[in-house]
């Protein structure tokens, strides 16, 4: 097992994610799915843009804060060629829109809602993600 295992911090971080999603649900009745929030900006509807931009700005603000407080938590140490990163980004962008959600929308929100669609989605992207990570790890000699 990896020496980097962080069960306490990861659970705490997860709880914050759940809290944020719960606030959006309670006050606005919305699903905190990142790919849905961002994807909606590419097919904008009047009156439905501001909150999406504000949410993404909040994410970026967290990133800025993290850079000063704990830059090691934002470190990129994956050995992936540029073409792999571009391919990966395109796959994530297209796949999350086609499949209506990502780790947050299907993973956190969908599983909390006991949605069968989300369960199928999570099992699928976890399985394919594991296969690709194992193969890429063998080809590039590991992630870090």
């Amino acid at each position: 097992m990896s020496p980097e295992f962080t069960p306490f911090l990861s659970t705490l971080g997860g709880a914050l994610i759940g809290l944020s999603a719960s606030a959006l649900l309670l006050f606005e009745g919305r699903v905190a799915g990142i790919s849905g929030i961002v994807g909606g900006l590419f097919a904008p509807k009047a009156g439905d843009i501001g909150w999406r931009v504000a949410f993404v700005a909040g994410l970026a603000l967290a990133g800025l804060g993290g850079m000063f407080v704990a830059p090691h938590l934002l470190a990129v140490e994956v050995t992936r060629a540029p073409w792999m990163l571009i391919t990966a980004g395109l796959l994530v962008g297209i796949g999350t829109r086609l499949g209506n959600g990502c780790t947050s929308g299907h993973g956190v929100c969908g599983l909390s809602r006991l949605s069968p669609r989300s369960l199928v989605s999570v099992l699928t992207f976890m399985f394919v993600g594991a296969v690709v990570a194992v193969v890429a790890g063998k080809l590039t000699g590991g992630a870090s």
Partner: peptide, 11 residues
């Protein structure tokens, strides 16, 4: 969609 996303995530 989930399969494409998973592939990109793992990559």
């Amino acid at each position: 969609g989930a399969a494409l996303f998973g592939a990109g995530w793992g990559l």
